[in-house]
Amino acid sequence: MSMTDEAPRLIERPVAAAAEPQAAEPPPAAERDVVFRSHDVNVYYGAFRAVRDVTFDVPKNEIMALIGPSGCGKSTVLRCYNRMNDLIKDARVTGAITYRGTDLYDERVDPVEVRRRIGMVFQKPNPFPKSIYDNVAYGPRVAGQKKGLDDVVESSLRKAALWEEVNDRLNDSALGLSGGQQQRLCIARAIAVGPDVLLMDEPCSALDPIATARIEDLMQEIKQDYTIMIVTHNMQQAARVSDTTAFFTADVRSENDTRTGILVEVDTTQKMFSNPADERTENYVTGRFG
């Protein structure tokens, strides 16, 4: 990242810290800028190892893009960060992932508590077949909130740049919205829980260029409040929106015909796209892959 990016973040940090109750005691300097830290993470689906020895840090209040060819384990890695792989019956995660210094996979950690802090937006917009209002109010409601829902709904929809379009029909079914509106609704829904991190798995792949541009703008606007990890197949998108980029690829072992996802390189997006250290990254970002 450039120095011009660095300066405003330094000014903002105390403000953000004051808003976070758990950050009352400042963490050690080394962990200050990092939200997630993964170390030798392996993910298995049954006996199949989908991802091998992934180690990287995720900086705070930045957008990190995960790129790589299809099937290299980007979604699998992303889903480790909010324990979403727990929902898949035979999935298993080894290695360590820390979130603000705490082991996410400690046996005392409740995945539900994790997911209230680390929200997720999926590839295909998946609003509930309920009203727009009920979709946004869903997260706060399951967390036990009963009062002030109107305010939460309005501010979340505003943040997701959807308020102007839907404020006169909050009680209509969310399924009546266009695909792009539905995806922004899903972002509003995730924001309404008051998360710290947003994980986005190809959030624009079902959208047209205009809807995509709106969501990219939106990400830029909200990144001062959140840390964002986004999986994308769109190189231009990664280059446009992200501060750092992680490139994954599938390592094919011909002797036993297994494909395993590995992390090739992580660096600032600028460096990854202009002067990557690894040849495989260079081939992929310039479209000479495979």
Binding site: N82, M84, L87, V112, E113, R115, R116, G119, M120, F122, K124, N126, P127, F128, P129, Y138, G139, R141, V142, A143, C186, R189, A190, V193
Partner: peptide
């Protein structure tokens, strides 16, 4: 569809809440 269950879980709903409200 499972996508609704995932959406619900991703918003911090427990299994029972997902079952009864989604």
């Amino acid at each position: 569809p499972d996508s609704l269950r995932e959406a619900s879980a991703g918003l911090g709903a427990r299994k029972m809440a997902t079952a009864t409200t989604v």
